[in-house]
């Protein structure tokens, strides 16, 4: 038997929590997430969950829109719905992916305690664990968008896409989705096992608030305010403008809170970018604080290594 004499595993011991160390922790967690979630890479499952499901729900919305409008919906209207709901696959995957990594590791694999006692921070590990799902969801969103446009004949004019706007919005949106996912993970750290459905329920509720498939002007005034404070509202609007310059605005319009307050019918691109950065920064702060509070409370109550029954 090996003696396991000391000294071999000690090299990194005295390195403090550096960015390099965080990056290594994150990268390892991404690999772990990918390996553990590797059935997602199974082509059939990937097709069903990440593509067929979102495409089906987009098409369902399109059909409903056609029925309601007696077949008179314009391609601009269809594009509005398609972009909003294709992006939603990404939101769903991002929020649920992060929150589920807590539940998976605690309830299913029972490894959360061993991750929690690692010198690297648990939040970085959870972020890494959720990244695989985020990536897959992102791919699903893009494919859904393309396929849905082809099927419904909504023309996306590559030449008219505002690439800079698109990239900037994607980056901001990524941060916003991670912030919301982190917040959801903080909630799931506190709750019991049956919270598997919370992330999707919350994402579903948000879907109605942020103008993903209809302009938020149709919502009651108070709810419009909530929608306007959500970073996702601005992110979706920004992407929509970048991809489909002719689509209607999801924000503003006669009688809307936005128009009442600002006197403009719809925000222009600059406003969209600024507000989406501001709301995303706010969401990130809230998520950061919420997560810190949650981890602290979990240590106070001994929640990190309990399993709530399975």
């Amino acid at each position: 038997m090996t003696q396991l004499a000391g000294s071999q595993a000690r090299p990194q011991r005295d390195a403090r929590g550096t960015w390099q160390e965080r990056l290594l922790t994150w990268r390892t967690a991404v690999r772990l997430g990918w390996a553990v979630e590797s059935n997602w890479a199974d082509p059939v499952l990937f097709l069903i969950y990440s593509i067929a499901k979102p495409i089906a729900s987009v098409l369902m919305l399109v059909v409903m829109l056609q029925v309601i409008s007696n077949g008179a919906a314009s391609t601009a209207d269809l594009g509005f719905v398609i972009v909003g709901s294709a992006l939603w696959a990404f939101v769903m995957g991002g929020i649920a992916g992060l929150a589920w990594s807590i539940l998976d590791d605690r309830e299913r694999y029972r490894m959360l305690r061993y991750l929690a006692i690692l010198p690297g921070s648990l939040s970085v590990i959870l972020l890494g664990r959720g990244t695989a799902r985020l990536l897959i969801a992102g791919m699903g969103s893009v494919i859904t968008l393309v396929v849905a446009c082809l099927i419904t004949g909504v023309p996306i004019d590559i030449g008219r896409i505002d690439w800079i706007m698109l990239l900037v919005c994607m980056a901001i949106g990524l941060v916003a989705v991670i912030a919301l996912g982190t917040l959801m993970a903080a909630v799931c750290m506190q709750t019991r096992q049956d919270s598997w459905s919370y992330p999707e329920a919350v994402a579903g509720a948000l879907f109605l608030l942020v103008g993903a498939v209809f302009p938020i002007v149709v919502l009651p005034q108070v709810v419009q305010w909530v929608g306007l404070l959500m970073p996702l509202t601005w992110w979706i609007e920004g992407i929509r403008r970048a991809v489909l310059p002719d689509a209607a605005s999801g924000i503003g319009g006669v009688g809307s809170v936005w128009t009442d307050v600002t006197g403009t019918l719809a925000p222009d691109q600059g406003v969209i970018l600024v507000v989406s950065m501001a709301t995303t920064a706010m969401a990130t702060l809230v998520a950061f604080g919420g997560y810190r509070w949650s981890e602290r409370r979990a240590r106070e109550r001994g929640l990190l290594d309990r399993t709530t029954g399975s």
């Binding site: 595993a9 990194q12 922790t25 390996a35 694999y109 061993y114 010198p119």
Partner: peptide
């Protein structure tokens, strides 16, 4: 009953070696 069921024994241990910051070959 802890463990990532889909991983091999060697893979799971390696993940932890990385979490502990041990260089890859080592």
């Amino acid at each position: 009953q802890s463990g990532y069921g889909l991983l091999q024994v060697r893979e799971q241990l390696w993940m932890f070696s990385q979490f502990y910051g041990i260089p890859v070959r080592e």
